[in-house]
Amino acid sequence: MSSSQEYRFGSVSAPDAVTFLVVEDDLVDQRAVKRGLRRHGIDNPIVFAEDGKVGLEILRGTGDTPPLRRPYIVLLDLNMPRMNGLEFLEEVRNDPELTGSIIFVLTTSDLDRDKAAAYEQHVAGYLLKTQAGVDFLNVVSMLERFVVTVRFPPEAGARV
């Protein structure tokens, strides 16, 4: 644990309170994302959805909870039951309330076709999920810098 302290950006998490929505059907992958973020010192809230449908419910507040508080970043798996990642992307981009969402694809699929389809839906980045290894460390530190560096769109109510 001690080494992870070196990476901690103390001022990052609480004030910005960017929420991560992890749309991912594999429980172990959910835990891996959470561990990666936490071990990297990113304490932001994390919400999980097991497929695209649940992800949409959380964003729209049509489930048991109110709409997800902004700002948020979606980490989206592609291969999921019921509604896969690309279908989710299409729904989000066609919904005027959600179309500006910042979405990273986080998947095992290295197919060019998937990458092209994802970027056509204006994802912020396409990240490859590999072993619990170097690459995932890179993914987490990239997200960390992203959260620190990037300015987020205004709250839904502030939009024209």
């Binding site: 644990m1 071990r39 072993q131 619990a132 170097v134 995932f136 460390l137």
Partner: peptide, 8 residues
């Protein structure tokens, strides 16, 4: 790929 333990 190589297995590297996360976070040391």
């Amino acid at each position: 790929t190589e297995h590297v333990t996360l976070g040391g």
